[in-house]
Amino acid sequence: MRSVEEYVKVRKRRFFTVTFTLLSLLITLALIHVSVGSSTENPFKIMSEAISEILHGYPGIASYRVMRLTASLLGGMALALSGLLIQTASRNPLGDPYLLGISSGALFGVVLTFALPLIPLYTLVLRPIAAFIGGVLAYLLTLAIASKAGMTTTSLVLAGVAVGTTLYSASLLPQYLIIQNIHQLFAWSQGSFVDPEPLGETMIFLSLVISLLILYKFVDVMNALNISDDFVRELGEDPAMLRKLLTLIASLIASLTVAWYGIIGFVGLASPHVSRRLIKSGDVRFVLPPALIFGSLMTVAADAVGKSIIYPVEIPVNIIVSLVGGPALATILMGLKHETRG
């Protein structure tokens, strides 16, 4: 680099290249996603059929496929945003709603509602609320344990694993005791877009739009928070309040995805990380769009593979995503070797 001006230009150019490339990949994958299933179809035919099905009010296979694609697009985006917010709030590259126990807490909350004798309509409303309460409480518990353990990167993640595994097992157990249809429920808790509820999609879409509108105002402060609390205070903002706001939004979005699509790990962890590495910058303005696209890329790809590779058996999204996410986590960990340096 010869100057700051050149750095700024290169960063902008790289941002557009990365965003355009990821977007083209996502569009290609989305077309593959709608074309595979019980039979392989022309994706454009499916889309036009879906539109006419929806217009005439007779939902069929085509509109189901499009709804399912929308669910996986939104799910990935929501998880990526949630991960990015947690990473910023905790200033920790290992921030992820799954890794920090939020997703398992949300799952536990939802499973509790299954035990209640409610009519289905109430369940639809209660589900996201229970997920949110479960998710936030689990995250608070993780934070409490981590702060007793010194609040380092490692203690935060280990506290999250402790809370997460406990609540995850606690959510699986009643499924065996109470629910008859274990196979389907287990598949849901392992992350699945099999059942794309329009209500769920609307809620996740709205929560994404509202969160992004709120965050737009906070971009500069988030960039400051990525560097130092003092930089935030200098801008006249309170870093503790900002952290609370960001984690609240992150928990809300992650819990909503759990309520409708079950647990999908690693998307929140990997998406912001990959985005920062590709554009070689940590500036939230540049990191956010590629991170959201990459989140969708992960879930759409995983769902396309999951629904077609051994049709008619559905492989849960989480299983496929974790096959890629586990090694990604390992790579990030190895990149953190400098942390021990004073």
Binding site: M1, V4, Y7, V8, R11, Q87, T88, R91, N92, P93, D220, N223, A224, N226, I227, S228, D230, F231, E234, H273, R276, R277, K280, S281, G282, D283, G335, L336, H338, E339
Partner: peptide, 21 residues
Amino acid sequence: TYIPPYVPALPDITIGDLLLV
């Protein structure tokens, strides 16, 4: 302007990001 001796930044933040914050 307060100039700190050190910042506990997220590891993926670049020197360029820091200068342009």
